[in-house]
Nucleic acid binder design. Structure first.
Lengths: 342, 342
DNA sequence: TTGTAAGCGTTATCAA
DNA sequence: TTGATAACGCTTACAA
């Protein structure tokens, strides 16, 4: 019942023909007698023959795999993106490697290296820092890459991203329109490109609204609930440079961070939007059902994934050096976590 | 600056030695003169040499890749699991293929086939139906497999899962203890093994509580918000066999489905737990912050991923035929979505 | 200490 | 219409 390794050679022995005849028959080469072809195909089926992609790839330089490297596999924001990527790939017959860089530059570098070693034909990366662009740039000749989730510093690389400055602006203007002037920014890691863009949008918009910018109101931190809760603990308890009365609203780089604020609200008994108004970013699916429903800036996540994958496959299949840069627009979802103050 | 293909042969030319000397030097073979070794390693570094994994894999039958096949990449439930899987793999130097079967048997089969073709050394699968076990069983000789998220029908395969019957029992008993006797079960797809186990737990527990089982109170449906909302619409509008007054509580196979009920509550104006009490399953991270916080049955997702990956790697590295079956325990998280009625 | 040669499973070219 | 042969890049006896 069990056969050691069902290879072309193995089938050739069984069929009593040469292995190259089998190869041709399996490719339905019309040069081979139609009956022999049929017969061989039948045998292949019977023995459950599966071409060895490694050998194939070695020979053809094609592996039909692409790598996706993101900063947090668990985040609903990213999962919606690679869900979409996976769908496109599946449809086009590609397989997806997935790796988590955890916002760590070293790990990202390692992931890129591993994927290239695995022979991926393309890469989709949400990079940790500007530096990582350089890595990929260095390697661009060998692997096509599409960057997502941030605007690269150079314009000769392919990317799909949402304008984070515009997003921050949307958030700030909404809060200002609701009467807020002291806005705490709970940003992501400092080296993260999107953090930087978001912070710039925050600064510029405050300026445009004639509100003085205060450096201490911008916090760079890891994007997770525990870190955020801890930070809020410190603020509420007076152990931070920022005091509880220094702000009336909070803007976050991510809905996950916003949920961290909700968590702190539960433990410290402050209320949203009573004590603090909160505006998130991403619009992950559960935010609509939070208590209170979170006002947030929507990112077209599925679209990001679809576009990135499509772009990548196109540039792979056409051997073209694609430099398309697609900028998607954020959108305000006004819900109940912002209070109007006088 | 750019070199066509940095292979061992290429390095050999540069170093002026034979290619096998290079191969050995790169493996730090002590047979090679230490100076030559150093020199070659330096050159390799300089030219950014990266061994071709395809060739390596072809030769060694080792690809250092494993495949993960799940039913819904986007679900926070699964993402927590493969986050954990990815962490274990990364640490052990493996790369992960990820594929989505969308609860479709055909797609699952295709995914398994693709992964095997890619030469994965192992597979972690949350299978769509009992049938798919057979597929993998058939192929067990070639690829080690660990099943997660459901109890297989046979006991000679390796798996890690939470006892869904126990979970359903926990949910039902909690509701019964709160005075509920008419409980709607919003289950998953009918062929899904976990749906079946959950339904059995529901039935058995009702029986144990001396509550008559009513077949029409069990709904098999896709696990997503839209489907659930639609179903609830029909019920509320009287377009379903089940009428709005037929039940006072709802148990769901997944927190995502529970959120669908929350969604329906918003549009139809019924309240949770006022109109209906709700108990979810999975304990995905956002449930704690919903309005109201969702009472749910916790599954140890991270642990599932870690155990599955560890088990798999062990059986790969020891060439052992591992048949461990690990059963994890669910846990009630009592929050505010269940009302006590008299 | 270094080099030669065979083989992993394909594909593709050329000869029979 | 079929078969022999070389090549993809690597590992590993074995020979020099």
């Amino acid at each position: 019942m069990k056969h050691p390794n069902v290879t072309i050679k193995f089938l050739a022995d069984i069929a009593g023909v040469s292995f190259s005849t089998v190869a041709k028959a399996l490719h339905n080469d019309p040069a081979i007698n139609i009956d022999t072809r049929r017969r061989i195909q039948k045998i292949a089926e019977e023995y459950n023959y599966r071409p060895n992609i490694l050998a194939k790839g070695l020979r053809n330089r094609r592996t039909k795999t692409i790598g996706v490297i993101l900063n947090d596999l668990q985040s609903p924001f990213y999962s919606e993106i690679y869900k979409a990527i996976g769908d496109v790939l599946e449809q086009k017959g590609y397989t997806m490697f997935l790796a988590d860089s955890k916002y760590e530059e070293e790990l990202e570098k390692k992931n890129i290296s591993t994927m290239i070693g695995q022979g991926v034909e393309g890469l989709i990366v949400s990079s940790v820092s500007e530096a990582s662009e350089n890595i990929a740039l260095l390697l661009r000749e060998s692997v096509k890459t599409v960057f997502i989730d941030n605007r690269p510093s150079r314009d000769d690389i392919c990317c799909v991203y949402v304008d984070h400055e515009a997003a921050a602006s949307l958030a700030i203007r909404h809060l200002v329109a609701s009467g807020h002037r002291n806005i705490l920014l709970l940003n992501g890691p400092e080296n993260l490109p999107s953090s930087q863009h978001f912070a710039r949008g925050y600064r510029e918009t405050l300026k445009a609204c004639h509100i003085p910018y205060r450096d201490e109101l911008v916090k760079f931190n890891a994007i997770d609930i525990a870190t955020t809760t801890h930070l809020m603990d410190n603020i509420i308890n007076g152990n931070d440079a920022v005091k509880p009365d220094d702000f009336t609203a909070i803007v976050t780089l991510s809905d996950v961070t916003a949920i961290g604020v909700y968590d702190a609200a539960m433990t410290h008994g402050f209320t949203i939007p009573g004590t603090y108004s909160v505006v998130g970013y991403d619009n992950i699916f559960s935010t609509k059902y939070l208590n209170p429903p979170l006002t947030t800036i929507h990112q077209p996540k599925e679209q990001t994934g679809v576009l990135a994958a499509t772009l990548l496959l196109e540039s792979i299949e056409n051997q073209a050096c694609n430099m398309t840069q697609i900028i998607l627009n954020p959108e305000l979802k006004s819900r109940a976590s912002v209070r109007i103050i006088s």
